[in-house]
Computed example of a mutant assay.
Amino acid sequence: MTDVVEVPIVADLPPHYAHANDAGADLRAAEAVELGPGERALIGTGVSIALPEGYAAFVVPRSGLAAKHGITVVNSPGTVDAGYRGEIKVTLLNTDRSERFAVAEGDRIAQLIVMPVTRAVFVPVAELPSSERGVAGFGSTGVSDAPRAPEADGRRTSSTPAV
């Protein structure tokens, strides 16, 4: 059974779970906006919530908008802290290079995921314990387990000279 938490809300268009097992509740636009190619806009939802202590909400893109129209949430996930009481707004970005995208009042523009959070106690140390990954950074695990020739995908490797 899924845990349920009561979240007080003030909203004309409250977030709504489309299906019983959905993790994200749809957030709707409280205003109409048109986004040109490459444009972004901060869009109000008319939703204010009071999360209980120990919880946070995260605003994430809707997969259908991203796949079909190139619409995403710029600061995804946007974090709503338990102490915040203002309107939840969504910064949408139109990544399409040629098509405009119109947002009508009432359109589903993002999802809100409510989760328990753990507070960390940051402990200063002289050095960190070792790990299998170590200090290897972004992209260090690659995209496939299959071996590739260094130039097969057009990416430079440590043995491929820079041009």
Rank of each mutant, 00 (worst) to 15 (best):
G106Q: 03
P8L: 07
A29R: 06
R85H: 06
R108S: 11
G78M: 04
A146S: 14
T141G: 14
L35E: 03
T91I: 09
I88W: 05
S158L: 15
A32I: 09
G142D: 10
E53P: 05
R108P: 04
A41R: 02
V73Y: 04
D3K: 12
V123D: 10
I113M: 04
R62N: 03
I49R: 01
Y84I: 04
S159R: 15
T72F: 01
P61A: 05
R100F: 11
R28I: 01
G137A: 06
A23G: 09
A20N: 13
R100A: 12
R97C: 09
V4M: 10
D107C: 06
A120M: 11
R119W: 10
P61N: 02
R97F: 11
V10R: 12
T79A: 07
S76L: 00
G36K: 08
A11G: 05
N21Q: 14
R62I: 00
D153W: 11
E6M: 02
A29W: 03
A136L: 15
V163S: 10
D22L: 09
A25Q: 00
S131I: 02
Q111W: 04
V121K: 14
G24F: 03
G38W: 03
V117K: 10
D3V: 14
T157Y: 03
N94G: 01
A20D: 14
G134L: 05
V74T: 07
M1E: 11
A57N: 00
G64I: 03
P129Y: 07
P15F: 02
E132Q: 06
V10W: 06
V163L: 14
A136S: 13
A30P: 03
V5M: 10
R40V: 05
V163M: 08
A126E: 15
V59E: 01
A23S: 08
A104E: 15
P161H: 10
V74C: 07
F122N: 10
V10K: 07
A120P: 01
A120W: 06
V123S: 04
A126F: 07
M115A: 15
P8I: 02
F138T: 07
I43G: 02
Y84A: 06
A102L: 13
E31N: 03
T45G: 04
P150A: 08
A149P: 09
P15A: 09
T91L: 12
E127C: 13
H19L: 09
V117Y: 13
F138H: 13
E151A: 14
G154P: 04
A102R: 13
G36T: 09
N75Y: 13
K68M: 07
H69Q: 11
R97Q: 12
A25R: 00
P161L: 12
I9K: 02
T79C: 09
I109K: 02
E6D: 13
P124Y: 06
D107K: 05
A67C: 04
E132A: 15
H16A: 11
E151Q: 11
A57W: 05
L112D: 02
A110G: 06
V5R: 02
T118W: 15
G24Y: 00
D145T: 11
G64Q: 05
V90W: 01
E132P: 04
L13P: 07
F122T: 12
R156K: 14
G137E: 10
V125W: 03
Y55M: 02
R119L: 04
D3L: 15
E99F: 07
G154H: 12
T95C: 14
E31S: 05
N21S: 15
R119M: 11
D3E: 13
P77Y: 01
